[in-house]
Amino acid sequence: MKNKSENISLGLFVLIGVVPFAAAFGYAILYSFGIIGVVNTGFTLEFWKAVIASGEFFKSFLYSAVIAFISLLISVGGALWIILKFRNQLERKFLSYISYLPLAIPGVVAAFFTLQLFSKGGFFSRISYNLGWTETTVEFPDLVNDAYAIGIILAFTTIVLPFFVLLFMNVYKNERIQELSILAQALGAKKNQVVRKVFLPILLQKTWVLIVLYFIFLLGAYEIPLILGQEAPQMLSVLIIREIKQYDLTKISEGYVAAVIYTVIVTLAAIMLFLPKKHGAYET
């Protein structure tokens, strides 16, 4: 009976979780080699060569990786700092409730908020104008759709930072970091040593898988870079969708090449991340 229900669960998982993904991936591979597609005529490496030769995909990949990395660095660093300095205040009911709120904001809404607040015609630009700091909207610095992706990073941080604050709060309690810090002090650790040798390593070691998963999530984010990004380079998902949706039907296959490369890289990273670890005799 137990085996039967396990088999049904496995079957459902394969049907819902694996089959659609594998089918879409297979479709993308076939499209990328010209085997299927409206104007494609048969197997060719032409699209792969074109994508590799143009270098736009790799530029976009690097651009996305840098943005995702900086956003995560600010979010994780900020969350750690908040836990270190304001943990007691965050344990109060009201603040704890407030910190959950940003998690309910969809990416597209966060992107529009950021646009409304930081664009040249936005809220802060108007304040700056009324205070006499700027005379025209052009003088207001480029904070959205800008070369340094400040708008994207701001929006990513708004969404990701509260999540890490809540995550670190829970790990702090579950791993009893408060007691371990006191113990470290009793063993002779100064406050900065407690942070470096107890607080940071435990929190980061317990959450690094989620940090990497968030990196992958930000790498493939779509709505925020679409609304707040610049024309070129674009973040990966925006580039891939632009290629696939464009009017030049001969270029669609190049979009699928980019999608296949991106999927392979992310899948390999995920496999490495979740490879089974060796367990010890008393491990629970």
Binding site: A186, L187, P201, I202, K206
Partner: peptide, 27 residues
């Protein structure tokens, strides 16, 4: 506390979870 050279041991065997037995002792 860190200047007293007095060590307080908790009721539970509270070890640093990120360090092995050697590194816990060597802390």
């Amino acid at each position: 506390p860190e200047k007293r050279n007095i060590v307080y041991l908790y009721q539970e065997d509270l070890l640093f979870p990120h360090l092995n037995a050697f590194e816990n002792i060597a802390f």
